[in-house]
Structures are given as structure tokens and as C-alpha cells.
Design a protein around this nucleic acid. Structure first.
Lengths: 329, 329
DNA sequence: TTGAAAGCGCTAACAC
DNA sequence: GTGTTAGCGCTTTCAA
């Protein structure tokens, strides 16, 4: 099947290309019978409009760029699904970009995004630096940030207030007299960890105490687990706060290794979990972060920005739900 | 920063747009000093070539479409990473499409892919029907299939022979006198399950036996687990073969519930696993399917097809590695 | 080595 | 209601 253009269709239907264009775009000003003729021609030739040409003519591509950190699809999977579902509704295509380690590379991605002339970009990246965002903003492309709280002219965001979540959790534990609380480092999510620390610290400060149990570990499980296996040899806490479920699991397994029983001897919670939390034993107490919704809302916001729809707030907070399970008492 | 085009750069540098184009594309025929002038202008104006316009002029978009089933990023994540890494090297952009349930929808996706004029498409989808592939092939766009074995004019594939894998595994168990082998259904991966059944059946047939223990279960864990919890009440097998690790875990948990110890009373293996297999106890014996490589190779093949590079075979088989762990003896 | 001009496929005034 | 035509931003002959 050779490339068939709008001209071919016009010829076949004995009309001008303008008319074909009108039919394609569903403009009402076309007479019934000529519309039918055109539609038949389209069908017969198997014509599909060239989105690239349309993009050039219309100055918009109806596609948006999605930037996520590499390798962690376990956590971003739901976000992507939410985003894609909404994108489908509004007929947007998604160009997927992933960030790896290395500051320089992000500039390549930006370069790429700009060149591709997407209509908007959605970013979920825990370590995106402010300067890079500014660079992107210069090109007046609407941006929605997932996770980070930040906004301006054409920058909006959707997030969950995990600082507050952890603050409240910590307060509860302090009230129960369990003040020995530790946070496990997560190299891959500096922003999130920052929020966790802030939350715990705030709760501690309110009772005149100080938080200083930030446990730094290599971020990959194997070493993380190994480190913790040692760590728990002579030590345990009332409560361990991890960011990802995989880290919480590492902690539990490591504790187990040292005969520390979870939740009896030590409790463990994590902030974001995956479907594997339904399968592990003990099941992890966690905050149900609405990942799917984060993606869906982000995409919805982009469409609003693109269609100049008014919207109340550029910073949208989604709520979490704490779900106590078997890793806490 | 307003839209700056090749004309603006040409003006700024006092050359024609043709020259600017040459500089952008690194053509050697530009004199040193004028090249510098152009480069300065580009820098000054912050010019980024419009990939859409280039796409129109060149009749290629340097982007490829990736089609994966929704929701299972746990398993496709590595494939995507592999694909993206290679795509980066060859400067291709990725348009992400996901398939949900429903036959009709796949046609929408195809429509979309064709309209977007990607240079090629990579498909990982265990239930893509042959007719749809044919529909796509009509548009003479190079296609690479991941997982399914199939090829023709502009259709290549990369896969792992899990039929053989399971055949060999089964043979081994039969030789050990463990003939009570069951396969757990996986609704989401009919093609893979089909391969598993074929493998086991072949091994059984060779010793004059017949395989008939295909356990049908709802595919979501909750119900899967619940079903199996009942299933194992009066029954157990020598070996359970699951496709995904999540299903194997469901089986193990369900068995546990009924005091069937894995691996002592019953052994369990799965074909593809995720990073969570490093954290669960017992750790699952599994075939290490090289997901990352599947993605990487698929992308590499596409580039070969696109650059008319010759390549030996349109069907590339990657090898698996069986890793016995704690769920088998 | 550089410039002029046609063309990639489509949209959107503006005529008729 | 339909056709003509001028772009959209870039590449690529063909001349100069």
C-alpha cells in the first residue's frame, strides 16, 4: 500500500483537497452527498491523515512528553497507566522519556522534547533540578509536575502531601510512647525522603525532641539488605519508615535474620507500595498513594492548560490513605 | 522565548536558510567562518530545529511506536528500559501505546500509529491477533515482535523459547519420578501459557503419558489466591508451573495456608520474575528471561530494518537461564 | 561554497 | 457549499 495523500483522495472523489480536509475534520459545511463521496474515496484508498503534516500546519502535535526515572516502573507503572487512559480520551499521544543518572543527560532530554514540539510535558522525577525546569519553561510549553510541589506561569503540579502523612504518623507513635523512629535512606528519591524527614522532625520538635535517626544505606536491595542485616545485629527501633515497599521488605527480612520479629519487636511502614504488597508476608502497612490518579490528574491538567480552560489551582493535592497491615501493631 | 525558525537564524547570520540547514545537519560543504556565524546565531536565538517540519520534509520521524499491554509494567518495565537505552543511542523517540481488553480498541491504536507516521513499531503483546498484524503490515512499516515467534517481509521478532525451557524442566522432573505436574492459568498471557502447555505435553508424550493438569484460575491475585487456597485443601502436586512470579507467590501462600510446605511438600517454579523475587521468602526458582535484552535487541533490529542493514535472521532467539532457588528442591 | 525555489501533506482564510 | 492559495518549517536539487 503506497503512501496516499489528501490529494489522492481529492482526485478519487473529484473534489478539492480543501473539501477532503473538511470531511476529515468533521466540519459541518460539507454537503451530505459529497461527504459520502469523500468518505468512500478515503475508505477505498485506505487513507490516513498524516499527523506530521497536520502538526506542521496547525502548530500543534497533540502529543505530550512524559518524563520518568528509568528502572522504577514498579512505582511509575500506575502513574503511566493513569496518564495514558486520560490521554486516550483526549486523543493525545505520549512520547516516553526516561532519565538516568547524570546531570548532563537531562539537557539532552529537554533538547529532544523541544525539538519534538510536543504540546505539553509531564514530569515525574524526584531529582529534577529547578534550573532544568526553568530551561524548559523558557520554551513556553505547559508543564505538569508529579510529586514535587511547585508552580508558576505554565507550570502546574499534582502531589500527595507525604510530609503531613508522616508527621501525623509520627505524632501518633510519639503519643504511644514509641519515640525510637528511624527513616531509611532512598537514594533514588531525595525529594520524597526530604519530605519524610521534615514530617518526622516537625512531630519531634513539637514535643521538644530531636530527630536524628536517618539511616543511610545503599539503595539497591542486595546491598541494602546486607547492610541492614548487619545494622540490626545489635540494634532495633520502635518504628522503621521506608519510602518504597522494597526497602521496607529489605528491612523486615534483615530484621528477621537477626531474630527481630515484625511487628512485635519492631514495626515497619512504607509510603508507596506495589501489587507485591498483596503477596508478601507480613503485608506492609503503607500509605496508599493514588499513583493512578496522580497520572490521570496530571494529564487532565495538561489538557486544561492546552485548551485554555480555567482551573482553580495550579497545585493540586491528592489525599493519601493510611492502611495499617501486618507490619505494624 | 518566541518560536524561532530557520529563517530567523538565516537572517541573524546573514545567510540563506539552506546554509543554516546544512549547518544543522553537519554537512561538510559549509565554510568554517560561515558555519561559526550560523552556530553563533543559533546559540544567540536559542534555535532548536522543528522535528515536525523535518519529519515532513524527510518523510521520516525518527520515532518508533511501542505497544505494550497495560498494567503489567512489572514485567514490561525492563523491556522498556532496554528498548529506550538503545533508542537513545540511535536518537529515536518512543511513542508509548498500551492495549487494554477489547478487540476493537487495537484498531484505534493501529490507526493512531499509522497517522503518527512512526518509522517502525515494536510490539510486546501476548494476545495480539494475526489479523491486526497484517493490517499494520499493509502500511509497510517495519515491525518487531517481542515474545511471539513470527516473521515476514517487514516483520521480525525476538523471543525466548519457553516451550523448550519447560519441556526440559518437565523431562527432568519426570525422570526423577515426579509426574504430578500442574500449570496455572494466566489469562493475561495466553500465548505464553500455550507454550508452557506445549512444552509439558511434549515431555509427557515422550514417555507415553498425557498432560491434563491445567489449573484454570482468575488472573488477579486476590481471587487467584482465594481460589488456590481452596484448591489446595485436598490436593497438592509435585510441581506447580506458573508463568509470572506473582502467580507462583499466590500458589505458595495458598499452599502455606493449607500446611503444604514449599518446597518440601510441593515445588513451585515460574517463568518470568521481577525484582521482588529477591525479597520474598522462599525465593522463587525461575527462568531468567532476559527482559532488558528483549527490548534492547528489538530496538536494534528495528534500526537495522530502518537503515537497510542486512541481518542474518528475522527471528532472533535469546536464551534463558534456569535459576533454581528456594521454591524447588 | 552558497542561494533560490520546489516540495513534503495539511489547514485556513478568502473567493466564488 | 466548494475551490484556490498561501503558509507551517524544513530539506534538497539545481544554479550560480
Amino acid at each position: 500500500m503506497k503512501r496516499v495523500t489528501i490529494y489522492d483522495v481529492a482526485n478519487e472523489a473529484k473534489v478539492s483537497l480543501a473539501t477532503v480536509s473538511r470531511v476529515i475534520n468533521g466540519l459541518e459545511i460539507v454537503r451530505e452527498d459529497t461527504r459520502i463521496r469523500v468518505e468512500n474515496a478515503i475508505e477505498k484508498l485506505g487513507y490516513k491523515p498524516n499527523a506530521i503534516a497536520q502538526g506542521l500546519a496547525l502548530q500543534k502535535t497533540t502529543s505530550i512528553a512524559l518524563v520518568v526515572p528509568e528502572a522504577s516502573f514498579n512505582y511509575t507503572g500506575q502513574i503511566i497507566n493513569g496518564l495514558l487512559d486520560v490521554a486516550k480520551i483526549y486523543k493525545y499521544n505520549i512520547m516516553l522519556h526516561t532519565t538516568t543518572e547524570g546531570i548532563t543527560e537531562i539537557n539532552e532530554i529537554i533538547e529532544n522534547i523541544i525539538k519534538s514540539r510536543v504540546d505539553g510535558v509531564v514530569i515525574y522525577n524526584d531529582k529534577l533540578l529547578y534550573e532544568e525546569l526553568v530551561e524548559l519553561t523558557k520554551y513556553q510549553v505547559p508543564i505538569v509536575l508529579i510529586g514535587n510541589r511547585m508552580s508558576n506561569e505554565n507550570l502546574a503540579c499534582v502531589y500527595v502531601d507525604i510530609e503531613k502523612a508522616i508527621y501525623e504518623l509520627t505524632k501518633e507513635y510519639i503519643e504511644k510512647g514509641k519515640q525510637d523512629i528511624a527513616i531509611i535512606q532512598d537514594r533514588k528519591n531525595p525529594y520524597a525522603i526530604d519530605q519524610l524527614i521534615k514530617g518526622v522532625t516537625r512531630a519531634f520538635n513539637e514535643v521538644g525532641a530531636e530527630f536524628d535517626q536517618y539511616v543511610e544505606i545503599p539503595s539497591h536491595y542486595r546491598s541494602s539488605y546486607e547492610f541492614l542485616t548487619n545494622y540490626f545485629k545489635g540494634k532495633k527501633h520502635d518504628l522503621i519508615i521506608a519510602h518504597r515497599d522494597s526497602q521496607a521488605l529489605a528491612a523486615i527480612n534483615a530484621a528477621n535474620e537477626n531474630n527481630i520479629k515484625v511487628p512485635d519487636d519492631m514495626e515497619v511502614v512504607c509510603v508507596i507500595d506495589t501489587k507485591y504488597n498483596a503477596m508478601v508476608r507480613p503485608r506492609l502497612s503503607s500509605f496508599s498513594i493514588p499513583s493512578y490518579d496522580l497520572g490521570a490528574v496530571a494529564m487532565r491538567i495538561i489538557t486544561k492548560m492546552l485548551h485554555q480552560e480555567d482551573f482553580e489551582d495550579k497545585e493540586i493535592e491528592l489525599s493519601y490513605l493510611y492502611s495499617p497491615r501486618q507490619s505494624t501493631k
